[in-house]
Design a protein around this nucleic acid. Structure first.
Lengths: 128, 128, 128, 128
DNA sequence: GTGGTCTAGACCACG
DNA sequence: GTGGTCTAGACCACT
Protein backbone atom coordinates (compact mmCIF):
# COMPACT_ATOMS: atom_id res chain seq x y z
CA UNK A 1 0.00 0.00 0.00
CA UNK A 2 2.76 2.42 0.93
CA UNK A 3 6.37 2.02 0.05
CA UNK A 4 9.17 3.48 2.11
CA UNK A 5 12.43 4.64 0.58
CA UNK A 6 14.99 4.03 3.28
CA UNK A 7 17.80 5.71 1.39
CA UNK A 8 16.06 8.97 0.68
CA UNK A 9 16.96 10.58 3.98
CA UNK A 10 13.37 11.65 4.55
CA UNK A 11 12.11 10.52 7.94
CA UNK A 12 10.09 7.34 7.73
CA UNK A 13 7.18 8.73 9.74
CA UNK A 14 6.97 11.66 7.32
CA UNK A 15 6.85 9.29 4.37
CA UNK A 16 4.05 7.42 6.12
CA UNK A 17 2.08 10.58 6.80
CA UNK A 18 2.41 11.79 3.22
CA UNK A 19 1.62 8.33 1.92
CA UNK A 20 -1.64 8.03 3.86
CA UNK A 21 -2.57 11.61 3.11
CA UNK A 22 -2.15 10.91 -0.58
CA UNK A 23 -4.25 7.75 -0.41
CA UNK A 24 -7.05 9.62 1.32
CA UNK A 25 -6.97 12.63 -1.01
CA UNK A 26 -6.80 10.20 -3.92
CA UNK A 27 -9.89 8.46 -2.85
CA UNK A 28 -8.01 5.17 -2.53
CA UNK A 29 -8.97 5.30 1.12
CA UNK A 30 -12.56 6.39 1.59
CA UNK A 31 -14.15 8.15 4.55
CA UNK A 32 -14.76 5.69 7.36
CA UNK A 33 -12.36 3.05 6.00
CA UNK A 34 -10.39 1.31 8.65
CA UNK A 35 -6.64 1.53 8.17
CA UNK A 36 -4.24 -1.20 9.31
CA UNK A 37 -3.41 -1.34 12.98
CA UNK A 38 -0.09 -0.03 14.21
CA UNK A 39 1.18 -3.53 14.86
CA UNK A 40 0.04 -4.91 11.52
CA UNK A 41 1.62 -2.00 9.70
CA UNK A 42 4.82 -2.45 11.68
CA UNK A 43 4.99 -6.09 10.68
CA UNK A 44 4.22 -5.46 7.01
CA UNK A 45 6.91 -2.83 6.64
CA UNK A 46 9.30 -4.27 9.23
CA UNK A 47 9.32 -0.93 10.97
CA UNK A 48 9.32 -0.08 14.64
CA UNK A 49 5.71 0.28 15.89
CA UNK A 50 6.63 3.55 17.57
CA UNK A 51 7.38 5.05 14.16
CA UNK A 52 4.01 3.96 12.86
CA UNK A 53 2.36 5.37 15.94
CA UNK A 54 4.06 8.71 15.47
CA UNK A 55 2.73 8.89 11.92
CA UNK A 56 -0.81 7.99 13.01
CA UNK A 57 -0.67 10.66 15.74
CA UNK A 58 0.29 13.29 13.20
CA UNK A 59 -2.49 12.16 10.86
CA UNK A 60 -4.95 12.39 13.70
CA UNK A 61 -3.67 15.85 14.61
CA UNK A 62 -4.46 16.88 11.04
CA UNK A 63 -7.91 15.28 11.40
CA UNK A 64 -7.23 13.04 8.45
CA UNK A 65 -7.83 9.97 10.58
CA UNK A 66 -9.30 9.34 13.99
CA UNK A 67 -8.49 6.54 16.38
CA UNK A 68 -10.77 4.70 18.69
CA UNK A 69 -9.16 3.05 21.66
CA UNK A 70 -9.43 -0.70 21.48
CA UNK A 71 -10.94 -0.62 17.99
CA UNK A 72 -8.53 0.84 15.53
CA UNK A 73 -7.97 3.84 13.27
CA UNK A 74 -10.30 5.15 10.62
CA UNK A 75 -10.29 7.68 7.83
CA UNK A 76 -12.16 10.82 8.80
CA UNK A 77 -15.80 10.93 7.74
CA UNK A 78 -15.59 14.69 7.31
CA UNK A 79 -15.74 14.78 3.53
CA UNK A 80 -15.79 18.54 3.71
CA UNK A 81 -12.37 18.45 5.32
CA UNK A 82 -11.05 15.99 2.79
CA UNK A 83 -12.25 18.13 -0.05
CA UNK A 84 -10.67 21.17 1.57
CA UNK A 85 -7.39 19.35 2.13
CA UNK A 86 -7.39 18.14 -1.44
CA UNK A 87 -7.85 21.66 -2.66
CA UNK A 88 -5.11 23.00 -0.40
CA UNK A 89 -2.83 20.27 -1.64
CA UNK A 90 -3.54 21.12 -5.26
CA UNK A 91 -3.06 24.80 -4.54
CA UNK A 92 0.36 24.32 -3.03
CA UNK A 93 1.44 22.07 -5.88
CA UNK A 94 0.20 24.63 -8.39
CA UNK A 95 2.02 27.39 -6.57
CA UNK A 96 5.33 25.62 -6.46
CA UNK A 97 5.04 24.52 -10.08
CA UNK A 98 4.33 28.10 -11.07
CA UNK A 99 7.32 29.27 -9.07
CA UNK A 100 9.51 26.68 -10.78
CA UNK A 101 8.18 27.71 -14.19
CA UNK A 102 8.96 31.31 -13.42
CA UNK A 103 12.48 30.42 -12.32
CA UNK A 104 12.92 28.70 -15.68
CA UNK A 105 12.00 31.87 -17.51
CA UNK A 106 8.52 30.87 -18.59
CA UNK A 107 6.13 33.74 -19.12
CA UNK A 108 2.98 34.10 -17.07
CA UNK A 109 0.88 33.91 -20.21
CA UNK A 110 2.51 30.66 -21.19
CA UNK A 111 1.75 29.17 -17.81
CA UNK A 112 -1.86 30.23 -17.82
CA UNK A 113 -2.31 28.96 -21.34
CA UNK A 114 -0.87 25.54 -20.50
CA UNK A 115 -3.07 25.42 -17.50
CA UNK A 116 -6.19 26.24 -19.44
CA UNK A 117 -5.33 23.60 -22.03
CA UNK A 118 -5.15 21.03 -19.27
CA UNK A 119 -8.33 22.29 -17.65
CA UNK A 120 -10.29 22.19 -20.84
CA UNK A 121 -9.10 18.71 -21.63
CA UNK A 122 -6.77 19.16 -24.53
CA UNK A 123 -5.35 15.69 -24.37
CA UNK A 124 -1.83 16.52 -25.36
CA UNK A 125 0.12 13.38 -24.72
CA UNK A 126 1.69 14.05 -21.37
CA UNK A 127 5.31 13.05 -21.17
CA UNK A 128 4.39 9.89 -19.29
CA UNK B 1 23.69 10.83 -9.01
CA UNK B 2 20.63 8.79 -9.88
CA UNK B 3 18.82 6.37 -7.65
CA UNK B 4 16.96 3.39 -8.95
CA UNK B 5 13.87 1.99 -7.25
CA UNK B 6 14.00 -1.71 -7.99
CA UNK B 7 10.62 -2.41 -6.44
CA UNK B 8 8.63 0.17 -8.34
CA UNK B 9 8.04 -2.06 -11.35
CA UNK B 10 9.16 0.75 -13.63
CA UNK B 11 11.87 -0.50 -16.00
CA UNK B 12 15.37 0.38 -14.86
CA UNK B 13 16.32 1.83 -18.23
CA UNK B 14 13.28 4.11 -18.09
CA UNK B 15 14.21 5.36 -14.65
CA UNK B 16 17.69 6.06 -15.96
CA UNK B 17 16.37 7.98 -18.95
CA UNK B 18 14.05 10.09 -16.81
CA UNK B 19 16.77 10.60 -14.24
CA UNK B 20 19.30 11.91 -16.73
CA UNK B 21 16.67 13.96 -18.50
CA UNK B 22 15.79 15.63 -15.24
CA UNK B 23 19.43 16.34 -14.41
CA UNK B 24 19.95 17.96 -17.80
CA UNK B 25 16.75 20.01 -17.72
CA UNK B 26 17.64 20.99 -14.14
CA UNK B 27 20.97 22.29 -15.18
CA UNK B 28 22.74 19.85 -12.85
CA UNK B 29 24.32 18.47 -16.00
CA UNK B 30 25.45 21.24 -18.30
CA UNK B 31 25.81 21.25 -22.09
CA UNK B 32 28.96 19.44 -23.12
CA UNK B 33 29.44 17.69 -19.78
CA UNK B 34 30.68 14.14 -20.10
CA UNK B 35 28.43 11.65 -18.38
CA UNK B 36 29.76 8.43 -16.81
CA UNK B 37 30.72 5.69 -19.26
CA UNK B 38 28.37 2.78 -19.72
CA UNK B 39 30.67 0.46 -17.82
CA UNK B 40 31.35 2.89 -14.99
CA UNK B 41 27.65 3.52 -14.51
CA UNK B 42 27.04 -0.22 -14.57
CA UNK B 43 29.58 -0.73 -11.81
CA UNK B 44 28.29 2.15 -9.68
CA UNK B 45 24.70 0.97 -9.77
CA UNK B 46 25.47 -2.75 -10.01
CA UNK B 47 23.41 -2.90 -13.15
CA UNK B 48 24.14 -4.77 -16.36
CA UNK B 49 25.98 -2.57 -18.88
CA UNK B 50 23.40 -3.45 -21.53
CA UNK B 51 20.67 -1.85 -19.46
CA UNK B 52 22.71 1.35 -19.08
CA UNK B 53 23.44 1.27 -22.79
CA UNK B 54 19.77 0.99 -23.58
CA UNK B 55 19.07 4.11 -21.54
CA UNK B 56 21.91 6.02 -23.22
CA UNK B 57 20.63 4.98 -26.64
CA UNK B 58 17.21 6.36 -25.83
CA UNK B 59 18.70 9.59 -24.48
CA UNK B 60 20.71 9.95 -27.68
CA UNK B 61 17.59 9.36 -29.75
CA UNK B 62 15.98 12.23 -27.89
CA UNK B 63 19.07 14.33 -28.63
CA UNK B 64 19.60 14.90 -24.91
CA UNK B 65 23.05 13.33 -25.09
CA UNK B 66 25.35 12.30 -27.90
CA UNK B 67 27.83 9.44 -27.85
CA UNK B 68 31.17 9.21 -29.60
CA UNK B 69 32.64 5.78 -30.23
CA UNK B 70 35.79 5.26 -28.27
CA UNK B 71 35.38 8.54 -26.42
CA UNK B 72 32.27 8.59 -24.29
CA UNK B 73 28.87 10.23 -23.97
CA UNK B 74 28.16 13.92 -23.52
CA UNK B 75 25.25 16.23 -22.77
CA UNK B 76 24.01 17.91 -25.93
CA UNK B 77 25.44 21.35 -26.57
CA UNK B 78 22.19 22.47 -28.13
CA UNK B 79 21.02 24.84 -25.40
CA UNK B 80 18.10 25.80 -27.59
CA UNK B 81 16.85 22.22 -27.44
CA UNK B 82 17.34 22.03 -23.69
CA UNK B 83 15.40 25.21 -23.13
CA UNK B 84 12.64 23.96 -25.40
CA UNK B 85 12.48 20.60 -23.64
CA UNK B 86 12.38 22.27 -20.27
CA UNK B 87 9.45 24.39 -21.33
CA UNK B 88 7.62 21.41 -22.83
CA UNK B 89 8.20 19.51 -19.64
CA UNK B 90 6.78 22.32 -17.49
CA UNK B 91 3.85 22.73 -19.85
CA UNK B 92 2.87 19.09 -19.66
CA UNK B 93 3.18 19.06 -15.88
CA UNK B 94 1.02 22.17 -15.68
CA UNK B 95 -1.53 20.65 -17.99
CA UNK B 96 -1.87 17.42 -16.07
CA UNK B 97 -2.01 19.22 -12.75
CA UNK B 98 -4.77 21.42 -14.13
CA UNK B 99 -6.62 18.36 -15.38
CA UNK B 100 -6.29 16.73 -11.96
CA UNK B 101 -7.50 19.91 -10.26
CA UNK B 102 -10.52 20.00 -12.51
CA UNK B 103 -11.29 16.36 -11.79
CA UNK B 104 -11.22 17.26 -8.09
CA UNK B 105 -13.81 19.93 -8.63
CA UNK B 106 -11.54 22.95 -8.35
CA UNK B 107 -12.73 26.00 -10.24
CA UNK B 108 -10.70 27.51 -13.04
CA UNK B 109 -10.42 30.78 -11.15
CA UNK B 110 -9.03 29.00 -8.12
CA UNK B 111 -6.39 27.36 -10.25
CA UNK B 112 -5.34 30.55 -11.94
CA UNK B 113 -5.22 32.36 -8.64
CA UNK B 114 -3.00 29.71 -7.04
CA UNK B 115 -0.81 29.88 -10.05
CA UNK B 116 -0.44 33.61 -9.89
CA UNK B 117 0.38 33.43 -6.21
CA UNK B 118 3.18 31.03 -6.99
CA UNK B 119 4.37 33.08 -9.91
CA UNK B 120 4.47 36.27 -7.94
CA UNK B 121 6.35 34.66 -5.13
CA UNK B 122 3.86 34.40 -2.30
CA UNK B 123 5.91 31.94 -0.34
CA UNK B 124 3.19 29.91 1.19
CA UNK B 125 5.09 27.26 3.13
CA UNK B 126 3.98 24.36 1.01
CA UNK B 127 3.15 21.33 3.05
CA UNK B 128 5.64 18.97 1.54
CA UNK C 1 9.79 -11.60 -46.79
CA UNK C 2 12.95 -9.74 -45.82
CA UNK C 3 16.46 -10.77 -46.65
CA UNK C 4 19.42 -9.93 -44.47
CA UNK C 5 22.90 -9.33 -45.86
CA UNK C 6 25.20 -10.51 -43.11
CA UNK C 7 28.33 -9.31 -44.88
CA UNK C 8 27.25 -5.75 -45.45
CA UNK C 9 28.33 -4.51 -42.07
CA UNK C 10 25.00 -2.82 -41.61
CA UNK C 11 23.45 -3.86 -38.30
CA UNK C 12 20.88 -6.61 -38.67
CA UNK C 13 18.26 -4.73 -36.67
CA UNK C 14 18.67 -1.74 -38.97
CA UNK C 15 18.17 -3.88 -42.04
CA UNK C 16 15.04 -5.28 -40.45
CA UNK C 17 13.70 -1.83 -39.66
CA UNK C 18 14.33 -0.57 -43.18
CA UNK C 19 12.95 -3.76 -44.66
CA UNK C 20 9.67 -3.57 -42.80
CA UNK C 21 9.40 0.16 -43.36
CA UNK C 22 9.76 -0.43 -47.08
CA UNK C 23 7.13 -3.19 -47.09
CA UNK C 24 4.68 -0.93 -45.28
CA UNK C 25 5.33 2.13 -47.46
CA UNK C 26 5.10 -0.16 -50.48
CA UNK C 27 1.73 -1.39 -49.50
CA UNK C 28 2.99 -4.98 -49.36
CA UNK C 29 2.01 -4.84 -45.70
CA UNK C 30 -1.36 -3.18 -45.24
CA UNK C 31 -2.68 -1.24 -42.24
CA UNK C 32 -3.75 -3.62 -39.51
CA UNK C 33 -1.85 -6.60 -40.91
CA UNK C 34 -0.25 -8.75 -38.26
CA UNK C 35 3.46 -9.18 -38.75
CA UNK C 36 5.32 -12.33 -37.69
CA UNK C 37 5.92 -12.72 -33.97
CA UNK C 38 9.35 -12.00 -32.62
CA UNK C 39 10.05 -15.67 -32.06
CA UNK C 40 8.73 -16.80 -35.43
CA UNK C 41 10.82 -14.20 -37.21
CA UNK C 42 13.83 -15.27 -35.18
CA UNK C 43 13.35 -18.87 -36.26
CA UNK C 44 12.77 -18.01 -39.93
CA UNK C 45 15.89 -15.90 -40.20
CA UNK C 46 17.93 -17.82 -37.64
CA UNK C 47 18.48 -14.62 -35.75
CA UNK C 48 18.39 -14.04 -32.02
CA UNK C 49 14.92 -12.98 -30.83
CA UNK C 50 16.44 -10.01 -29.05
CA UNK C 51 17.68 -8.62 -32.35
CA UNK C 52 14.23 -8.96 -33.89
CA UNK C 53 12.72 -7.36 -30.82
CA UNK C 54 15.07 -4.42 -31.09
CA UNK C 55 13.91 -3.84 -34.65
CA UNK C 56 10.25 -4.08 -33.67
CA UNK C 57 10.81 -1.63 -30.83
CA UNK C 58 12.29 0.90 -33.24
CA UNK C 59 9.44 0.37 -35.70
CA UNK C 60 6.96 0.96 -32.90
CA UNK C 61 8.80 4.11 -31.86
CA UNK C 62 8.36 5.36 -35.41
CA UNK C 63 4.65 4.46 -35.18
CA UNK C 64 5.00 2.17 -38.19
CA UNK C 65 3.80 -0.80 -36.16
CA UNK C 66 2.22 -1.23 -32.76
CA UNK C 67 2.63 -4.18 -30.43
CA UNK C 68 0.14 -5.63 -28.01
CA UNK C 69 1.43 -7.72 -25.13
CA UNK C 70 0.29 -11.27 -25.40
CA UNK C 71 -1.20 -10.72 -28.85
CA UNK C 72 1.41 -9.73 -31.39
CA UNK C 73 2.56 -6.85 -33.55
CA UNK C 74 0.54 -5.09 -36.24
CA UNK C 75 1.02 -2.52 -38.97
CA UNK C 76 -0.28 0.88 -37.91
CA UNK C 77 -3.83 1.64 -38.99
CA UNK C 78 -2.96 5.32 -39.38
CA UNK C 79 -3.06 5.53 -43.17
CA UNK C 80 -2.48 9.25 -42.88
CA UNK C 81 0.88 8.58 -41.29
CA UNK C 82 1.81 5.99 -43.88
CA UNK C 83 1.00 8.36 -46.71
CA UNK C 84 3.00 11.10 -45.05
CA UNK C 85 5.98 8.82 -44.47
CA UNK C 86 5.85 7.62 -48.05
CA UNK C 87 5.95 11.18 -49.29
CA UNK C 88 8.80 12.10 -46.95
CA UNK C 89 10.69 9.07 -48.14
CA UNK C 90 10.26 9.99 -51.78
CA UNK C 91 11.20 13.59 -51.06
CA UNK C 92 14.46 12.66 -49.39
CA UNK C 93 15.36 10.26 -52.19
CA UNK C 94 14.62 12.95 -54.75
CA UNK C 95 16.70 15.45 -52.83
CA UNK C 96 19.73 13.25 -52.53
CA UNK C 97 19.51 12.17 -56.16
CA UNK C 98 19.37 15.83 -57.16
CA UNK C 99 22.37 16.58 -54.97
CA UNK C 100 24.27 13.70 -56.54
CA UNK C 101 23.32 14.89 -60.02
CA UNK C 102 24.57 18.34 -59.22
CA UNK C 103 27.85 16.96 -57.89
CA UNK C 104 28.21 15.15 -61.20
CA UNK C 105 27.87 18.42 -63.08
CA UNK C 106 24.37 17.91 -64.39
CA UNK C 107 22.44 21.10 -65.04
CA UNK C 108 19.26 21.93 -63.19
CA UNK C 109 17.33 22.00 -66.45
CA UNK C 110 18.54 18.53 -67.32
CA UNK C 111 17.37 17.21 -64.01
CA UNK C 112 13.95 18.78 -64.25
CA UNK C 113 13.54 17.53 -67.80
CA UNK C 114 14.43 13.95 -66.86
CA UNK C 115 12.02 14.20 -64.02
CA UNK C 116 9.19 15.40 -66.18
CA UNK C 117 9.84 12.63 -68.68
CA UNK C 118 9.50 10.10 -65.90
CA UNK C 119 6.43 11.81 -64.50
CA UNK C 120 4.67 11.95 -67.80
CA UNK C 121 5.37 8.33 -68.53
CA UNK C 122 7.95 8.37 -71.29
CA UNK C 123 8.81 4.76 -70.84
CA UNK C 124 12.48 4.90 -71.66
CA UNK C 125 13.65 1.38 -71.00
CA UNK C 126 15.80 2.25 -68.04
CA UNK C 127 19.07 0.41 -68.05
CA UNK C 128 18.54 -1.55 -64.92
CA UNK D 1 35.25 -4.65 -54.32
CA UNK D 2 32.01 -6.11 -55.62
CA UNK D 3 29.66 -8.31 -53.67
CA UNK D 4 27.38 -10.81 -55.28
CA UNK D 5 24.00 -11.71 -53.85
CA UNK D 6 23.51 -15.33 -54.84
CA UNK D 7 19.97 -15.49 -53.56
CA UNK D 8 18.60 -12.48 -55.36
CA UNK D 9 17.81 -14.37 -58.55
CA UNK D 10 19.55 -11.71 -60.63
CA UNK D 11 22.14 -13.26 -62.95
CA UNK D 12 25.65 -13.07 -61.54
CA UNK D 13 27.14 -11.61 -64.69
CA UNK D 14 24.56 -8.85 -64.59
CA UNK D 15 25.45 -8.05 -61.02
CA UNK D 16 29.09 -7.89 -62.07
CA UNK D 17 28.36 -5.58 -64.98
CA UNK D 18 26.30 -3.23 -62.83
CA UNK D 19 28.88 -3.38 -60.09
CA UNK D 20 31.77 -2.36 -62.33
CA UNK D 21 29.67 0.24 -64.06
CA UNK D 22 28.84 1.77 -60.73
CA UNK D 23 32.47 1.81 -59.63
CA UNK D 24 33.50 3.56 -62.82
CA UNK D 25 30.68 6.11 -62.76
CA UNK D 26 31.44 6.66 -59.08
CA UNK D 27 35.00 7.46 -59.77
CA UNK D 28 36.16 4.59 -57.58
CA UNK D 29 37.71 3.18 -60.72
CA UNK D 30 39.44 5.88 -62.75
CA UNK D 31 40.09 6.04 -66.49
CA UNK D 32 42.99 3.79 -67.37
CA UNK D 33 42.88 1.79 -64.14
CA UNK D 34 43.55 -1.88 -64.61
CA UNK D 35 40.79 -4.10 -63.30
CA UNK D 36 41.45 -7.59 -61.92
CA UNK D 37 42.05 -10.36 -64.42
CA UNK D 38 39.29 -12.83 -65.18
CA UNK D 39 41.09 -15.58 -63.29
CA UNK D 40 41.86 -13.43 -60.27
CA UNK D 41 38.28 -12.24 -60.10
CA UNK D 42 37.05 -15.82 -60.44
CA UNK D 43 39.20 -16.88 -57.52
CA UNK D 44 38.24 -13.96 -55.31
CA UNK D 45 34.54 -14.51 -55.76
CA UNK D 46 34.70 -18.28 -56.21
CA UNK D 47 32.84 -17.89 -59.47
CA UNK D 48 33.25 -19.67 -62.77
CA UNK D 49 35.73 -17.72 -64.96
CA UNK D 50 33.30 -17.96 -67.85
CA UNK D 51 30.82 -15.87 -65.90
CA UNK D 52 33.44 -13.22 -65.25
CA UNK D 53 34.40 -13.28 -68.89
CA UNK D 54 30.82 -12.77 -69.97
CA UNK D 55 30.56 -9.71 -67.73
CA UNK D 56 33.81 -8.26 -69.07
CA UNK D 57 32.62 -8.82 -72.65
CA UNK D 58 29.46 -6.90 -71.94
CA UNK D 59 31.40 -4.08 -70.29
CA UNK D 60 33.68 -3.92 -73.31
CA UNK D 61 30.66 -3.85 -75.62
CA UNK D 62 29.46 -0.82 -73.73
CA UNK D 63 32.95 0.69 -74.06
CA UNK D 64 33.22 0.99 -70.31
CA UNK D 65 36.36 -1.12 -70.32
CA UNK D 66 38.71 -2.35 -73.00
CA UNK D 67 40.78 -5.50 -72.96
CA UNK D 68 44.25 -6.00 -74.35
CA UNK D 69 45.17 -9.56 -75.22
CA UNK D 70 47.88 -10.85 -72.98
CA UNK D 71 47.89 -7.74 -70.81
CA UNK D 72 44.59 -7.40 -69.06
CA UNK D 73 41.48 -5.18 -68.90
CA UNK D 74 41.36 -1.45 -68.29
CA UNK D 75 38.80 1.24 -67.61
CA UNK D 76 38.12 3.29 -70.72
CA UNK D 77 40.12 6.49 -70.99
CA UNK D 78 37.26 8.18 -72.78
CA UNK D 79 36.23 10.52 -69.97
CA UNK D 80 33.67 12.04 -72.31
CA UNK D 81 31.95 8.67 -72.52
CA UNK D 82 32.08 8.18 -68.76
CA UNK D 83 30.58 11.57 -68.19
CA UNK D 84 27.89 10.81 -70.72
CA UNK D 85 27.15 7.43 -69.16
CA UNK D 86 27.00 8.98 -65.74
CA UNK D 87 24.49 11.48 -66.98
CA UNK D 88 22.40 8.82 -68.69
CA UNK D 89 22.48 6.80 -65.52
CA UNK D 90 21.32 9.73 -63.42
CA UNK D 91 18.63 10.53 -65.97
CA UNK D 92 17.19 7.05 -65.86
CA UNK D 93 17.22 7.00 -62.07
CA UNK D 94 15.51 10.37 -61.98
CA UNK D 95 12.92 9.18 -64.44
CA UNK D 96 12.04 6.05 -62.56
CA UNK D 97 11.96 7.89 -59.24
CA UNK D 98 9.62 10.45 -60.75
CA UNK D 99 7.43 7.67 -62.10
CA UNK D 100 7.35 6.04 -58.68
CA UNK D 101 6.51 9.35 -57.04
CA UNK D 102 3.67 9.86 -59.47
CA UNK D 103 2.35 6.37 -58.80
CA UNK D 104 2.30 7.27 -55.11
CA UNK D 105 0.15 10.29 -55.79
CA UNK D 106 2.82 12.96 -55.37
CA UNK D 107 2.18 16.14 -57.32
CA UNK D 108 4.57 17.33 -60.01
CA UNK D 109 5.19 20.55 -58.09
CA UNK D 110 6.12 18.59 -54.99
CA UNK D 111 8.62 16.58 -56.95
CA UNK D 112 10.23 19.57 -58.60
CA UNK D 113 10.42 21.39 -55.29
CA UNK D 114 12.12 18.47 -53.54
CA UNK D 115 14.51 18.24 -56.41
CA UNK D 116 15.41 21.90 -56.27
CA UNK D 117 15.94 21.69 -52.53
CA UNK D 118 18.42 18.90 -53.12
CA UNK D 119 20.07 20.73 -55.98
CA UNK D 120 20.49 23.90 -54.02
CA UNK D 121 21.95 22.05 -51.09
CA UNK D 122 19.26 22.28 -48.44
CA UNK D 123 20.79 19.71 -46.17
CA UNK D 124 17.64 18.15 -44.87
CA UNK D 125 18.80 15.10 -43.03
CA UNK D 126 18.19 12.35 -45.53
CA UNK D 127 16.58 9.28 -44.08
CA UNK D 128 19.89 7.44 -44.21
C1' DG E 1 39.78 2.27 -22.48
C1' DT E 2 35.17 3.81 -25.22
C1' DG E 3 30.47 2.82 -27.47
C1' DG E 4 27.84 -0.62 -30.63
C1' DT E 5 26.08 -5.09 -32.00
C1' DC E 6 24.77 -9.73 -31.30
C1' DT E 7 23.80 -14.06 -28.92
C1' DA E 8 21.96 -16.95 -25.17
C1' DG E 9 18.98 -17.68 -21.78
C1' DA E 10 16.27 -16.16 -17.80
C1' DC E 11 11.94 -14.22 -15.83
C1' DC E 12 7.68 -11.47 -15.98
C1' DA E 13 2.81 -9.97 -17.42
C1' DC E 14 -0.77 -10.60 -20.50
C1' DG E 15 -4.50 -13.42 -22.60
C1' DG F 1 1.54 -18.68 -26.97
C1' DT F 2 2.68 -13.15 -27.09
C1' DG F 3 5.76 -8.98 -26.17
C1' DG F 4 8.98 -6.69 -22.50
C1' DT F 5 12.87 -6.50 -19.36
C1' DC F 6 17.20 -7.90 -17.61
C1' DT F 7 21.57 -10.37 -17.22
C1' DA F 8 25.87 -12.38 -18.92
C1' DG F 9 29.31 -12.54 -21.95
C1' DA F 10 31.16 -12.29 -26.63
C1' DC F 11 33.20 -9.61 -30.48
C1' DC F 12 33.95 -5.43 -33.19
C1' DA F 13 35.63 -0.59 -34.34
C1' DC F 14 37.54 3.44 -32.75
C1' DT F 15 41.44 6.32 -30.36
Amino acid sequence: MIRIDYRSGRPIYEQLVNGFEKLVLNGCLKPGDQIPSVRQMALELSINPNTIHRAYTELERRSIIFSVKGRGSYVTTDTQLIRHEREQNLRSRLESLAAEARASGMSEEGIVSALQDGYNGIEGESKK
